[in-house]
Design a protein around this nucleic acid. Sequence first.
DNA 1: GATGAATGAGTGTTCATTCAT
DNA 2: AATGAATGAACACTCATTCAT
Lengths: 192, 192, 192, 192
Amino acid sequence: MGEAPRRPRPMRADAARNRARLLDVATEVFTTRGVGVPTEEIARAAGVGVGTLFRHFPTKEALLEAVMVRRLETMAARTEQLTTGSAPAEAFFDCFRLLVEQSVGKSDFVEALAAAGVDVRSALRESSTAIRDQLGDLLTGAQRAGAVRPELGLPELLALLAGIGRAVEQLGADPAGRERIFEVVFAGLRPH
Amino acid sequence: MGEAPRRPRPMRADAARNRARLLDVATEVFTTRGVGVPTEEIARAAGVGVGTLFRHFPTKEALLEAVMVRRLETMAARTEQLTTGSAPAEAFFDCFRLLVEQSVGKSDFVEALAAAGVDVRSALRESSTAIRDQLGDLLTGAQRAGAVRPELGLPELLALLAGIGRAVEQLGADPAGRERIFEVVFAGLRPH
Amino acid sequence: MGEAPRRPRPMRADAARNRARLLDVATEVFTTRGVGVPTEEIARAAGVGVGTLFRHFPTKEALLEAVMVRRLETMAARTEQLTTGSAPAEAFFDCFRLLVEQSVGKSDFVEALAAAGVDVRSALRESSTAIRDQLGDLLTGAQRAGAVRPELGLPELLALLAGIGRAVEQLGADPAGRERIFEVVFAGLRPH
Amino acid sequence: MGEAPRRPRPMRADAARNRARLLDVATEVFTTRGVGVPTEEIARAAGVGVGTLFRHFPTKEALLEAVMVRRLETMAARTEQLTTGSAPAEAFFDCFRLLVEQSVGKSDFVEALAAAGVDVRSALRESSTAIRDQLGDLLTGAQRAGAVRPELGLPELLALLAGIGRAVEQLGADPAGRERIFEVVFAGLRPH
DNA sequence: GATGAATGAGTGTTCATTCAT
DNA sequence: AATGAATGAACACTCATTCAT
């Protein structure tokens, strides 16, 4: 079935698959069980040897960074979608909600948000700059539209995103309660 | 069986001093440098041997727990103070602020405890129940006084406290920004 | 039997014994099988756990250094003995022979000699300075007595010691051959 | 069985080039940075993949051996040159000097080979026998010419070569000091 | 033949916990 | 009660060697 691959890609296919698998597994594992999980276990769960893990990510920290970068990129992509095609105010609040909701049950997503606000890690700088810029534009737009307190700065916004992400995460599966939290924050963000 | 209960007391003075010192040092160290700091270092900083540490706290986890419990108790005490001498609305907001500012750096602990498989609720239930009850009273009082949205429940309040704690923690040393965050949340908490 | 030890030494006795044993074993093992031997094996051979090894020597390199320091100190002590109480020329040649003969079958002894000539390692500096100074005095004395070429410097002497140590080591158990090597070198060291 | 032996040859050009390049690089790298350098790095420096390295040399140890053999062969060739065109005494001393200067940095190899359990003599016997024989002839010639102590045997000469090689190696870049060492040894080698 | 991704045993080191003193 | 030396399982990471492409 499908097309016969005349030239099986220059052999990078398996490598790329392994890399992707490692990233997926690491994301899952770090999210659910914390960053303390041994590298060996991650490798085993991905079906490869430790050596392979370290070939793709020279350090456990590098693996963590890669996970975060991917999360940040996902965020940026979705933010991008929302941004284009909505009125500034609407875009701002939709985006806030989206970012927060993506982090439910995923504490490392919150970490990623937080990292975007702190940005000490060199490897993360590029991708965290991306969303930070997007959010900056979004914030300015909403403020110009008179939908958000004019005195609010980008750092506070990032901190609030990470914080509300955590709040929602801690609340767990309680849609009504989550909605109430959004109401509180959104109301508070509006001028006056 | 049935030894005369002489209940020795004299030597306890030093022991109690050591215990208190260990708790102080552990609080300081865990807060500023994370829970990854080796027990031996904590013992040294407290001026005792590791053995002494483990005599008082049979496990590192137990030490973490004890630190948490004491924090919670301190918070409960301060909350009590605030509660008893102020108008309900004022007491509520003062208390919110106090708890947020006291909880900076605490999230690390909770996660470590959870990761260690401790049933956080069982271990800390007693002391955490105390503040939870106080907060419930405070919330109801503020709602009756018309200072807080009537539909807000205790779970959301707790989640918000944790979340804003994290936001403030991430923001770091920026008093003006921190104030802006409080303004947003306090404004949002008020009815309508 | 024996004296009842009223006060068993402040408990350092065992620790010191372990440390000494580790040093002995490491010396033996490094000498006979090279520095590539795993730390764990050294610990096992000394009858202790790895942790104990690392408690006494924070690094494998530190252990190696300690071995070398002890060798250098041994050399210095024996050199000292020979120096005092002999005529300068005699002392010089006796000492040369002694140093070389101690290194037979002990390549790390040669290393120690070499280290005294190079002295990059900070930890070795003190002890290597000691013998270097002694040998410097010895050399000057012998040169003043007209027994050694006046143009020979200390660096060359140290290099020669290490080199002849290696030569003798490679020659193995052949007393006559060893003697011939000494004859060659001693003759060459004399003026003209 | 019994395929027609076509004896392919064409593609061998590249293979031979690779082999030679690997040997060159390995010699350089092992000499300057020790035998601990990873195979992969050597392959990269030679511009080939690890697989190619292991196709040519089934083992790291085999690569080491090949490097040694080539060094010995080079030495033998130069020794031969010196031998044939000079008076016996001159040839002997020139050759001594040459071998010492060529062997700088070689001791590392021999030790690594020995440590790896290779029977150095069997693996390198052929090529080392060559120089040994030449040196034997050279020694005898010089002794007949009255330029070298008659009682000196070939084993001591070999040991001296290795030892002085090490001495010179340790001395590093100090031409004058090196010269003084040669003076000492050459003077010592002469009769009486 | 060549490539380089994959492997996994092996290494140095850490750290919570125990126990002799 | 206190001490700190000892323990050893656990961890991150390396590297010679194999093998699918």
